[in-house]
Design a protein around this nucleic acid. Structure first.
Lengths: 247, 247
DNA sequence: CAGTGGTCTAGACCACGGT
DNA sequence: CCGTGGTCTAGACCACTGG
């Protein structure tokens, strides 16, 4: 059991600077369920006392966690574990009419047990012949389908979901993963490429075969990088506009 | 003349926290030429003394500047103004063979004086009937053209370049803008959409009409947000793969 | 070796939120 | 009003770089 005090700190690589160790300790407590999204952390002063360090050191640790999107801080109220909202997700850049920046709603069509193909097994860190849960899902903005996706989850952690009818899957999956399976998705990488529409795309999204299609592959992990989900989303390219600030 | 001491600080909004004021002071000194890319800042201790603040306050200002990509810090060596490398630019995600992550080389084909169209005038913050410099450029990876672009610059600052033959334009334009015209490009926003190849695209890049095309519009500014350049890049979608980390 | 940035301490006072 | 996080100070010692 990891706790937010000097005892918990002892289990972390002592070569790291103290502020890194404290940040990592908080991450572990979140990963292993000691604290969940929305929960308040102890006040800085108490953290400093419990860990036996100065206030400034705790503040530095918390500042770095805020930059990483792990916590939120509110002057006068406290520090809270953040509900990851994946605000940077490429999926926010599908648009329909003026619906820019809003996440398309999801509706699950199908859920199956399967043997993982090689690519999925590699992404999820599974051995060959491992079983996975495979979902198929349509995402819509104001009722118009803009994308569809395939999702793979390791059966080991998500087997419980195999018996759930597709219509009972909620719009937001990640909070549900946490309450149903105790798995907190905190980070992900997404990769965007461009392809052309095939029969499955036009069936679900409209358009004609050969139209440009945006393909987004997401690999989601826990806060410490443990793979949790593989997802491939395909949407019509005309509904996509992505913006980035650089320096 | 802005200088890195208490006198320079006096000209900045006193309602800001001191560490913000110091960061802004450094930005001004960079923008107005007091320091350029590669130049060393004074040591933290001297900055603290000159500005009449504690070392920790200076460190906090410099840390925030480093996060914004304005400076680099090297333990034991010093703090230096960073040469912006636009490592997050979408242009890095064109690939040919295994050339992932490398910036395509650029060769200018044409340079012209023109009247700014409405969109360009708006982006550059110019009045109607303003003159701009218009460039056309091909970008290649290992000799293979992967994209081409149109570039617009306000004649007011860049008029000098009108007389330069296209073949004399260097591969990297931004350092050249600085030495030739005294304009330092520090930030930009880029917007990605997807279109289909027209005659101009296939002439320069190959492929056939109707192929998916990546369209990137860049708006580049100085460190303080003054618009400097508008650029539209078009490349074949098959050579494009973009990756992002989210949380 | 001298000088730089990196880490850490132990305080102080201020701004804000909720009771 | 009290408790929270936000800003700032004035030191200390360490780790790294370069001559």
């Amino acid at each position: 059991m990891t706790s937010l005090n000097a005892a918990g700190l002892a289990s972390i690589d002592a070569r790291l600077p103290m502020y890194r160790r404290i940040a990592q300790l908080v991450e572990r407590v979140v990963e292993f369920g000691g604290l969940g999204p929305g929960d308040a952390l102890p006040p800085e002063s108490q953290l400093a006392a419990d860990c036996g360090v100065a206030l400034g050191t705790v503040r530095r640790a918390l500042d770095s966690l805020r930059e990483d999107g792990v916590i939120e801080r509110h002057q006068g109220r406290g520090t809270f574990v953040r509900q990851p909202d994946f605000h940077a997700s490429l999926l926010r850049f599908f648009r329909f009419g003026d619906g820019v920046g809003t996440l398309p709603e999801g509706r699950v069509l199908m859920v199956n047990r399967e043997l993982a193909d090689a690519a999925t097994a590699a992404v999820l860190g599974l051995g060959t012949d491992s079983e996975v849960l495979a979902l198929r899902r349509v995402r819509s903005l104001r009722g118009m389908p803009v994308a569809w996706e395939r999702i793979w989850l390791p059966s080991s952690a998500f087997g419980v979901l195999a018996g759930v009818p597709a219509t009972d899957f909620p719009n937001l999956l990640y909070p549900w993963y946490q309450t149903r399976c105790g798995v907190l998705v905190s980070r992900a990488t997404e990769e965007l490429t461009i392809g052309r529409a095939e029969a499955e795309d036009t069936d679900l999204l409209g358009g004609v075969a050969g139209d440009p299609v945006v393909v987004i592959e997401r690999r989601a992990t826990t806060i410490t990088g443990q793979p949790v989900e593989r997802r491939i989303t395909r949407g019509l390219a005309t509904t996509f506009r992505y913006r980035v600030e650089i320096s």
